[in-house]
Amino acid sequence: MSHIVVEGLSVRYNGQPALDNVSLEIPDRQITAVIGPSGCGKTTFLRCLNRLIDTMDQVRVSGRVLIDGADIFAPRANVISLRRKMGLLSQKPQVLPMSIYDNVAYGPRLHGVRRRRDLDGIVQRCLKMSSLWEEVHHRLRAPATGLSVGQQQRLCLARGLAVEPEALLCDEPTASLDPLSAQSVERLFVELKSRYTIVLVTHILRQAKRLADYVVFLYMGELVEHGPAERVFNNPRDERTRKYLEGVIS
């Protein structure tokens, strides 16, 4: 099980700081909620953890992110196996332009699973884990774009699970879903946290309160406060956290 430690992480876009000297440890097999007002650097933080930040132009990252003790920003780090370890669920479901089956099988195929029977097994298991199997098992060959948005998001989750990640990075995963789909995704998180470390970026305070075991509060790129959910929510130490929780700043 991977263990994520962030040390002095700073990110600049075009010289504009977006994250400033963030250091923290993310607890294993729990849901860590990253909260904070819009533009405070939540997405940036998440993208650092699987180095998707590399795909952007004009960014400078400094500091270290240790996963299982190894710095992922080290020159010789293996980005591909890192990304495989850190599953990503984005705000808008991003289905790949292929069938439902191929969406889930995409990752395993890349990583060398070739046998039909193995792939079938993986697809079935992952779709069941994301409680999509019942709805789609009769049309696995249909294009994934035909699914509803809520189903697409669960498909993305299944696709992420198929490469056997160790952590799940979720960027406002319910933001574009209807309340019922959002509820089912939330339920999935609770089920999955016994096996995966989940980092959940969310705008919805109530969602964070419902799900989080640990809370990280960012404000204008700065790590203001982090700690067990109960303590942070009931007894914030920093003025800004308290104001944010009360809805004064947003």
């Binding site: 795909t55 990503l88 991003q94 790949l96 332009p97 292929m98 890349l110």
Partner: peptide, 21 residues
């Protein structure tokens, strides 16, 4: 960009992402 990132985040190489997505 989202489609590309989805593929990258599954551990695809850049070329694999180009090819498949």
């Amino acid at each position: 960009a989202g489609a590309r990132e989805a593929s990258l985040s599954l551990g695809a190489t850049k070329w694999e992402t180009v090819k498949h997505v």
